[in-house]
Amino acid sequence: MGLGVSPAVAEPLIVEAALDRPVFQPVLDAFSAEYPQITLDYRERSTLEADRRARDAENPPDVVISSAMPWQLALSNEGRAQALDSVEAQQWPAWAKWRNEVFGFTFEPVVMAYRLELASHMPPPTTHRDLLDLLTDYRDWLRGRVVTYSPRDSGVGYTLLQQDARYTPRIWDLVAAMGAANVDLAQDTQAMLEGLSDGRYWLGYNLLGSYAMVWAQSHPDIIVQVPNDYSLVLMRMAFVHRDAPHPQAARRFVDFLLSQRGQRILAGRTPLFSVRDDVIGPYTAQRLRDQVGDHLYPIPINATLLAFVDPLRRQAFLRRWDRELNILSE
């Protein structure tokens, strides 16, 4: 490949990412193999931390990756992202990008997970309604054994619940039922999966399917269920920072994520699911659709997401969350 920089000169690249390194490692390795002159500084962060780093005017990162879609979009809306005009960027499907600045490059279904032993006590849930029924009928059994994202402490959790609420107001019944079951609130999927394996939790709601599926492979007592009525799909979003100190390397990195080569590694060696239809592997959006049917609902990448980060709306939403959570306990 024609590289503008001689391999002798090391070119640093700072990536602030809300994406577990072990999951993403194959992609990073492939990138390093293709661009040996680029020294990758991959910093694993929480979504809110990644957002904070992206706003740091003193030390801006080169690339920001996060699953907190509204925040990523807000950063672009504030003008902190730069548009890419590479072929990969131009050809990226329109529903998975915004302004040619932010690109959703993974396709991660949001799932429920439960312990195998739950199935011996009650019918395991396959839909949101099942879950509500379960929480109502087996409230005493499940008390303290249910876990979900904390919308206050996790950007992903907040986004998922907002999106749930956009589809149906009955989600609040579910919130109320979970509240009545003394739901535990976690900051990330990893914590929920660990709790399930410990036996602390029997049932988890709104886990990231990508992590859960990998976990279930090594923990056979955990069952991952893609809801049969509708399943949200979260997309990991990446952009090159406007003030990237190493813009060339940054653009190479994002182009690599979008390229067929990058996506093939995503589809074959990570559970992050490739967005591209021309990529074949166990983890592709197309294959997922074939398996679970057409009730996959990707969170739309457009300006509506910006409403989620409006402080007043967030405040009102969290107020309602608090109220609904305790409504049955009072």
Partner: peptide, 8 residues
């Protein structure tokens, strides 16, 4: 409560 459609 910011309506999402308005932003769209």
């Amino acid at each position: 409560e910011m309506p999402a459609s308005a932003l769209q």
